[in-house]
């Protein structure tokens, strides 16, 4: 997910060409207070005319507690981006209020309530405490994300590259998302030139359960994809597991072993997830394995 400052036409018009899974056109922190009106109109015009290809377009609006939040929604909701990202979410009540406003706008424009989704950003201590309720209560929320910089500021601690201060928050948010069966996206890595640091942090995020990571520069996309894409070896192994499981299941056998390791349902489920990530399908017997791209 690539962040793009909402008042920057050069970057918005190229949003779809970098191979990001989604872009986030930002009306919040990357737009100066006196340019919010300009960014809103620019994003509206761009979304109407520019082809972003397969890249999903999301928009981050300002918090409803600011003078800009409502105007943002009035401009953006009718455009029906894939998702609206709502910053500094602190409670389910707040989300309920947000959804009410969004649905009212949708009704006014004769739009359905189930197409555009909401991403809640957790970037305050209060948000972290309430995250499960936020993640689980509304089906329209299909992803939560953590905002590392704001969270450290809210906690009155210094942001360190090792992420020590927000480690608990990361894990708590991951768990809330997993319990709610929704996506969970990690915060940005601010140093564009530190490719090794980015890789390490992304590997850690994947390890503890994040399903994606936000980037601030297109140059970071490849590394994120690289980390989140299963390796060829992982896919081959998963392929074998799923294939043998299906063969065994057909023969009425539940648990079996590959290379001396027990394969049971959780292992199979994980293998299926890896194949899904790699866009690999199990082909019927006799067909060649699909090469991994």
């Amino acid at each position: 997910m690539l962040y793009i400052p909402g008042n920057n036409p050069a970057m918005i018009q190229q949003g779809g060409v970098y191979g990001a899974d989604s872009i986030l056109l930002d009306l919040e922190d990357s737009v100066a207070l006196n340019q919010k009106d300009a960014a809103r109109i620019l994003i509206r015009n761009m979304m109407r005319t520019i082809d972003f290809y397969d890249t999903e377009v999301c928009v981050r609006v300002n918090h409803l507690g600011t003078p800009f939040g409502l105007a943002d929604l009035e401009e953006i909701v009718p455009l029906q981006p894939s998702a609206i990202r709502y910053p500094k979410t602190e409670s389910a009540e707040e989300v309920g209020n947000l959804l009410e406003i969004i649905e009212k706008i949708e009704d006014k424009h004769g739009l359905p309530h189930h197409v555009m989704t909401i991403h809640a950003m957790i970037e305050t201590a209060m948000g972290v405490q309430n995250v499960f309720e936020i993640a689980s209560k509304f089906p329209r929320i299909d992803a939560i994300t953590i905002g590392g910089q704001d969270l450290t500021a809210d906690m009155n601690i210094i942001y360190t590259p090792d992420g020590a201060g927000i480690d608990f928050a990361r894990k708590r948010i991951v768990m809330a998302a997993k319990a709610s069966h929704i996506d969970i996206i990690d915060t940005v890595f601010p140093d564009v030139n530190d490719e090794e640091g980015l890789r390490k942090e992304t590997e850690y995020a994947r390890k503890i359960g994040f399903t994606g990571k936000a980037v601030i520069n297109p140059r970071q996309i490849d590394i994120i994809h690289n980390v989140f894409t299963p390796t060829e070896e992982e896919v081959r192994k998963a392929y074998r597991i799923v294939k043998e499981f299906r063969a065994n299941a057909a023969a009425g056998q539940g648990v079996f072993a590959i290379d001396g390791k027990m394969i049971d349902t959780p292992v199979v489920r994980r293998a299926e997830y890896i194949l899904q990530l790699a866009h690999v399908e199990i082909l019927p017997e006799g067909a060649d394995e699909k090469p991994i791209t």
């Binding site: 036409p9 018009q13 009106d37 300009a38 109109i41 620019l42 015009n45 761009m46 520019i50």
Partner: peptide, 17 residues
Amino acid sequence: GALEPTIKARLETAINR
């Protein structure tokens, strides 16, 4: 070298303001 949507957005913003 602004594209058409940008030209329109900027002029609309200026007029609104």
